[in-house]
């Protein structure tokens, strides 16, 4: 990968993470403000939390596509593996829902 291509990818990831965090945070704050009057606001806050959790995942997807475009298949395989592990982790979370301690 050329250093210019790398620099461009770094700038885009920086923007994705920065604006993504602000967007998710604003949704959470809006949810909390609404929740102080109406319980439905908590649903919005929960949506914001979901967005925040998905942000690093979207970053991995972005890196995966950048690597595929650069035809760097070995490293793309590593990125794909990271995504696969995250999906497996979610599957474990969904599966173990009923018996988890601390559940609402």
């Amino acid at each position: 990968m050329s250093s210019e291509a790398m620099a461009r990818i770094e700038r885009r990831i920086a923007a994705l993470l920065r604006y993504g965090t602000w967007l998710a945070s604003l949704v959470i704050v809006a949810g909390l403000v609404i929740a102080s009057r109406d319980p439905v606001g908590m649903r919005l806050a929960q949506l914001g939390i979901g967005l925040l959790i998905l942000l690093p995942v979207s970053r991995v997807i972005f890196v995966l596509f950048a690597l595929l475009r650069e035809r760097d298949y070995r490293l793309a395989l590593a990125a794909a593996l990271v995504l696969l592990i995250i999906v497996a982790s979610i599957a474990v979370g969904v599966h173990a829902g009923g018996e988890a301690p601390g559940r609402e």
Partner: peptide
């Protein structure tokens, strides 16, 4: 990313209480 891997699971599990 590391935190998202466990965070997503805990979110699905229902232990992330808003």
């Amino acid at each position: 990313v590391t935190a998202a891997a466990s965070g997503a699971a805990y979110f699905a599990r229902g232990v992330i209480v808003p």
